[in-house]
């Protein structure tokens, strides 16, 4: 047993210094809904716990002048839900985050924690991938931006370098007629882990899909950006043929595990079914109905 230390710095620079000094045993604490469970189970025994909830940049939500958003990595689900405009512009991203756990979990769980925990089934991630969100990280060697799609590298693994802290997510401004949606398949209606999760981000003009992006979760070692599914949707009226092609692309992208929640065959099939349902919701929202 090493002695654990706890600190809650007010500035990002202090946090970066403390986190780097703590080395491999240091852990960032956002909402703690993964970290404390892992500590309780004896899976993690942190040397230093760096609580980032006192750092303004990680806990604020900003709507930029061009209509984009910058969301702090540690903002809790319940807080983002209360924001007056974020959920109108990015309803899919918000519903992914809000599907995590219960009301109690929503009081704490963050997008940064969901992404950095590295679960292939993380509900907050597919819609962020589809949204083209970019993560800003800061570490001992300064600041850099990583597209969210390039952050997960395997179960429990990310492309953050040692000592790097997730700071905020930038969501781009959107053209008129754009919206998004996230759906997951779970065996129950609440409090379960996704068997498949699909995020779809669309731009529609006069009934034609002019831009699309698809994020797929829980069916491979990482959340995936399915470019072939997007290609099948772009230029179409989201007619049956286009949706079938996009669904087939999602099924083809699957490389899932076989477990008690779903077999390989089931997950692969459901990925296609969910793509169609999610695209329909995003299209309705994009049309303003």
């Amino acid at each position: 047993m090493t002695d654990t230390q706890y600190m809650a710095p007010q500035t990002l620079d202090e946090a970066v210094t403390a986190f780097a000094a703590g080395g491999e045993a240091a852990r960032i604490l956002a909402g703690g809904t993964d970290l404390l469970v892992q500590m309780g189970a004896g899976m993690v025994n942190p040397g230093v716990i760096v609580d980032v909830k006192k750092i303004t940049e990680l806990n604020s939500i900003e709507e930029t002048a061009d209509g984009g958003f910058v969301v702090g990595a540690a903002v809790a689900g319940a807080v983002l839900e209360e924001h007056p405009t974020f959920g109108k512009v990015w309803p899919g991203v918000l519903e992914g985050l809000n599907l995590i756990g219960s009301t109690q979990i929503q009081g704490r769980a963050s997008l940064g924690g969901n992404l950095c925990n590295g679960s292939p089934a993380a509900d907050g991630v597919p819609a962020m991938v589809a949204a083209g969100a970019v993560l800003t990280v800061q570490g001992p060697n300064g600041r850099r931006d990583i597209p969210v799609k390039d952050v997960p590298t395997g179960p429990g693994k990310t492309s953050l370098a040692p000592g790097e802290i997730a700071v905020c997510f930038t969501f781009p401004p959107r053209p008129a007629g754009s919206s998004d949606a996230y759906l997951r398949m779970i065996p129950r209606t609440e409090m379960d882990i996704a068997v498949v999760g699909v995020g779809v981000n669309l731009t529609m003009k006069d009934g034609v899909c002019t831009d699309a992006s698809v994020g797929l979760g829980a069916v491979a070692p990482t959340v995936l950006l399915v470019e072939d599914a997007a290609k099948a949707l772009i230029g179409s009226k989201l007619d049956a043929a286009a949706l079938d092609a996009a669904a087939a692309a999602c099924s083809a992208a699957c490389n899932p595990i076989d477990d008690k929640r779903g077999t390989i065959a089931y997950r692969t099939k459901v990925a296609g079914v969910l793509l169609k349902r999610t695209a329909a919701i995003a299209a309705k929202r994009a049309a303003g109905v």
């Binding site: 706890y6 809650a8 604490l29 909402g31 703690g32 809904t33 404390l36 469970v37 309780g40 716990i49 609580d51 909830k53 109690q104 979990i105 009081g107 704490r108």
Partner: peptide, 10 residues
Amino acid sequence: VCACLVLAAE
């Protein structure tokens, strides 16, 4: 929140 997932130090 769940008190079991909050550190007392927080």
